[in-house]
Amino acid sequence: MNIVFMGTPDFAVPVLEMLLQEGYPVTAVVSQPDRPKGRKKVLTPPPVKEAALRHGLPVLQPERIRRSEAVEAIAGLQPDLIVTAAYGQIVPKAILELPKHGCINVHASLLPKYRGGAPIQHAILNGEAVTGVTIMYMAEGLDTGDMLAKVEVPITDEDTGGTLFDKLSEAGADLLRRTLPDLLVGKLTAVPQAHEEATLAPNIKREDEWIRWERPAMELFNQIRGLNPHPGAFTTWNGDVLKIWAARKPKPASVPQGAVPGTVIGTGDDYIEVATGDGALRVTELQPAGKKAMSAAQLLRGTSVPAGTVLGERADAGTDGRR
């Protein structure tokens, strides 16, 4: 049996590693092309490619999976099963019809909720208490295929996009390990999705990163942790971008009369308290323009942030610093 694996980011690496550890015959890997990364724009291979090369597996990196040359190359591998995990492109029907065991996908949500490219971030952004992983047959639509298996994963108040990414990655690999044996002998019955209940989780855009202080404090808390470590939520301070990397879960707080959202209303040993649409949020980790991320305590030791300082006065801020 020939298995072709398709994936790109770190999320997909444990799935590939599981297949190899369990002795499944992965004959080739398909991943996105190498991309420039970092301030110096160094051409960098995706994590799945790096993992595949460590195991001596051939790697295909078509710019567009729909192009005829890409379809022909994958057809030439004669796959009996295609396994995908966060590949990053919609796979065309011509490829979906190749393997006799079908094409299955490891998706980081409890479908039909959060179809799309950023289900992990959106689950936190929306304040979900539970998310999970779904293994499904791939179809021509965006994450619309029939479902084979699911597993739930709780979301805690301490979770960030990064920690939940890791949890779901491991949960997906384990779920696939338990699902594949029954799938390959025909013991599983696929269940259609309730399409009327579907929600979307599109890729994060720049506007999603902008902190609108007039929103409720809990929504801002979820935004900040959901976008950590990438791409990060940001506001402005003295006209420059200010990344906000962490904040405390908000509690009921009194706000001085007349303080507009975004106003610093006080500081503590390790936080900066900012007025929001319904109270206040205590920021604990941040990154001024041109500097590395730091705790609020570190910033306050060298910089005065007096009460009355207003954050977010320029919504058109441009390039920001990254971790």
Rank of each mutant, 00 (worst) to 15 (best):
A75Q: 14
G318F: 14
T276Q: 12
G318C: 07
T8V: 07
T27W: 00
D316A: 06
G56V: 12
Q21D: 14
A315K: 08
K40A: 11
P288E: 08
P9K: 03
A28C: 04
G76D: 02
L57S: 04
V91Y: 05
V48A: 03
E22Y: 06
E128G: 06
V15M: 09
E72N: 10
F165K: 03
R248S: 07
P192E: 00
I244S: 03
D166G: 07
I65R: 01
I120K: 06
D270A: 10
G268L: 00
T267H: 01
P33D: 03
P229C: 14
A307H: 05
G308H: 12
E273I: 13
L77R: 02
T267L: 00
V255W: 11
K292Q: 13
R39P: 08
D240Y: 13
V264G: 01
T163A: 12
W237T: 04
G116R: 07
S169C: 12
L180E: 04
I244N: 00
T84N: 04
V151T: 15
A51H: 06
A289I: 15
V4A: 01
S68A: 15
I124L: 05
K167Y: 06
A297Y: 03
V48L: 06
L227A: 01
A52I: 13
Q32V: 00
W213Y: 09
T276F: 06
N2Q: 15
P261Y: 07
E63Y: 06
P202M: 03
I211N: 00
Y271Q: 13
P47Q: 06
W213M: 02
I65N: 01
K249T: 00
A70C: 07
G321W: 13
Q61T: 15
A139V: 10
I211H: 00
V13R: 13
A108E: 05
T236L: 08
R206M: 14
A75N: 09
K49C: 13
L311E: 10
G321C: 10
V106T: 05
N2E: 14
I211V: 13
A253Y: 00
T303I: 09
D278C: 10
D80F: 07
K37F: 11
M6D: 01
I124E: 02
G132E: 04
K291L: 11
A75T: 08
K167V: 08
E285A: 14
E140H: 10
D80W: 05
K41A: 13
L148K: 02
M294W: 05
I155V: 14
R314T: 15
G290E: 12
V191N: 00
W245N: 08
A253K: 00
E313I: 11
S31M: 03
V241E: 05
W213S: 02
D182C: 08
N222H: 14
E273Q: 15
I244R: 01
Q193V: 05
L200I: 09
E273M: 15
A233C: 08
A198Q: 05
D316H: 01
Q298F: 04
L188V: 09
H230I: 15
C103M: 10
G308S: 12
N126W: 11
Q61D: 09
T263V: 04
R39C: 09
P256W: 06
L142S: 07
A289L: 15
L175M: 11
P33N: 10
D316E: 14
E17K: 09
T8M: 03
V83P: 06
T199L: 13
L281M: 12
V310C: 04
F234E: 05
Y137R: 12
I95W: 03
